[in-house]
Write a protein that binds this DNA or RNA. Structure first.
Length: 497
RNA sequence: CGGGAUGUAGCUUAGUCCGGUUAAAGUGCGCGUCUGGGGGGCGCGAGAUCGGUGGUUCGAAUCCACUCAUCCCGACCA
């Protein structure tokens, strides 16, 4: 339907009108990604990929600091591998893409190419939905003695899970991620690793994404297929729905047994190896968007913004442009010294107003503007994206001012999101209040009797799932919000992405 | 895989109910011009075999059948 707004100006869906529509429009408007012609797949565009690259850089450093090395394992996994670990195959079988042939040929009727039926694979290959099986198949050959342990490996890769319903970044059939796969001599060492990597994720989310998270443990029904224990970081989006932002699994000896990976300990006794795996994906992009952005567009935390500062000149004549550009190039040097990424946009094809909107949409943290009046007065305009606050400051010293502003914004975004999360977390003690709270959105902290049956019933009745049992859960005696049976502590419920 | 909806220019849509010359608009794109402190104005121009196939008809974007695709709501899921 045409409205007067469509004709008069660019009109965008607001968060309060239709949150998921707002999200979809924003992803495209900010030039992060677009739908591909392949169902469920997306094209990550340069600006979106630049943000993902920043995430990768930071995370990769953190993995290296904790002793991990990168490696690469194949995209294709022999079908038989998947079935070696019983619960693993059960978890993933329903969403695997399968390669059955290795050749095409021209159709006899000239209609194009068809699969050559003669080129059928003897053993079909699956496209990895995750790499535990193929990696543990390799580890069998890599590990003989306790001296070979631990193995601390990470890989950056794409994986495929044939999802029924997809959404840009949040759930796509193919996505990018990293998966860490470690092998240890003892259960305790593997458990410590699981926890260590969870803390790495939490630190990344809070310090870089400015996104507060709850560290917790998944219930049996939400646990990774093949894990003994799954830890997670859970975050809350602005619409009150929870989003699992990262997981770290203690795999016990499940994969070691499935792939027969044993090592000789110091006494020469053969033992199965202990394992972990942990991952975050391009889903973090979705989390980043939904955590901070507003009705005008993306809001990026300075530490992950590909462009931290953009400057726009305002001018009539070439002479004006040239003298403004001189000052901007001075600034460019100063920002470079400080390690601040800076873009001077002197593109003459776009007008200032257009550029202002563009960079707001793309979430560039700080925008500078300088016109003839500022130039004459030795001033420059500084606008911060998070609060849209506009200030005219002295040109002299503006790089220091902006440097401080970026740090303040990083902190402010986190604090704002933390306040939101805290204000959206409600404790309830009876089921009527529980239903009401779930309807209102946010985390609902309530007692649970620990049974999967109760968990399932609550899900059926309210659509809420147990997001996690917080690691900092306080021991307190209470009664399960549904069954009334005894409980020793509260767990977090929410509707989730 | 169940329920609902939609396919018309790069994008967003009007036209479809009630068939009738050359399919309309906004935006975007190109050129020119006036402009330039929050997505500019004016003028000109390019751009669509109306998702596909078949049928009804003198005549189909419009009616019928089939088909493909996408989106939304469920079940499933990082």
């Amino acid at each position: 339907m045409h409205t007067i707004f469509d004709i008069m100006a660019v009109k965008h869906t607001k968060r309060t009108e239709d949150y998921s529509k707002w999200y979809n429009e924003l992803v495209q408007r900010a030039d992060l990604a677009e739908h591909s012609d392949v169902r469920g797949c997306m094209v990550i565009k340069p600006y979106g990929f630049a943000i993902w690259e920043r995430m990768k850089e930071v995370l990769d450093d953190m993995f290296k600091e904790t002793g991990h090395s990168n490696a690469y394992f194949p995209l294709f996994i022999p079908k038989s591998y998947l079935s070696k670990e019983a619960s693993h195959v059960e978890g993933f079988a329903k969403e695997c893409a399968v390669v059955t042939h290795y050749r095409l040929k021209n159709a006899e009727d000239g209609s194009g190419v068809v699969v050559d039926p003669k080129a059928k694979l003897e053993e079909e290959l699956i496209v990895r939905p995750t790499s535990e099986t193929i990696i543990w198949n390799s580890y069998r050959n890599w590990i003989q003695s306790y001296r070979d342990l631990p193995i601390l490996i990470n890989q950056w890769a794409n994986v495929v899970r044939w999802e029924m319903r997809t959404r840009l970044f949040l759930r796509t059939a193919e996505f990018l991620w990293q998966e860490g796969h470690t092998a240890h001599a003892t259960a305790n060492e593997a458990i410590d690793e699981t926890r260590q990597m969870l803390d790495v994720y939490a630190k990344f989310a809070e310090d870089f994404m400015a996104m507060p998270v709850v560290r917790g443990r998944k219930t049996a029904s939400e646990r990774f297929a093949g894990a003994e224990d799954t830890l997670c970081i859970e975050s809350l989006m602005q619409d009150g729905k929870a989003l699992q932002a990262g997981t770290s699994h203690f795999l016990g000896q499940n994969f070691a047994k499935a792939f027969d990976v044993k090592f000789a300990d110091k006494e020469g006794k053969l033992e199965y190896v202990w394992a972990t795996s942990w991952g975050v994906s391009t889903r973090l992009m979705g989390a980043l968007i939904m955590c901070h952005s507003d009705d005008e567009g993306l809001v990026l935390p300075p530490r992950l913004a590909p462009i931290q500062v953009v400057a726009v000149p305002i001018y009539r004549s070439k002479e004006e442009l040239s003298s403004i550009s001189d000052r901007m190039l001075e600034l460019k040097k100063l920002f470079k010294e400080k390690g601040i990424s800076f873009k001077y946009d002197d593109d003459d094809n776009r007008r200032p107003g257009w550029k202002f909107s563009e960079y707001e949409t793309k979430g560039v943290p700080v925008r500078l503007a300088m016109g003839p009046r500022d130039l004459a007065n030795g001033k420059i305009e500084v606008v911060r994206r998070d609060t849209k606050e506009k200030k005219i400051v002295d040109f002299e010293g503006v790089s220091d001012y902006v440097d401080g502003l970026l740090k303040e914004m990083q902190e402010h975004l986190f604090q704002r999101a933390l306040d939101f999360k805290n204000n959206s977390t409600i404790e309830v003690d009876d089921f009527e209040a529980f239903k009401k709270a779930i309807k209102g959105g946010g985390f609902v902290s309530a007692h649970w009797d620990g049974s999967s049956e109760t968990e399932e019933k609550i899900k059926e009745m309210t659509q809420a799932t147990i997001r996690c049992i917080p690691l900092d859960q306080i021991k307190e005696n209470g009664k399960c919000v549904l069954s009334g049976k005894p409980s020793e502590g509260r767990v977090l419920f929410a509707k989730a992405y």
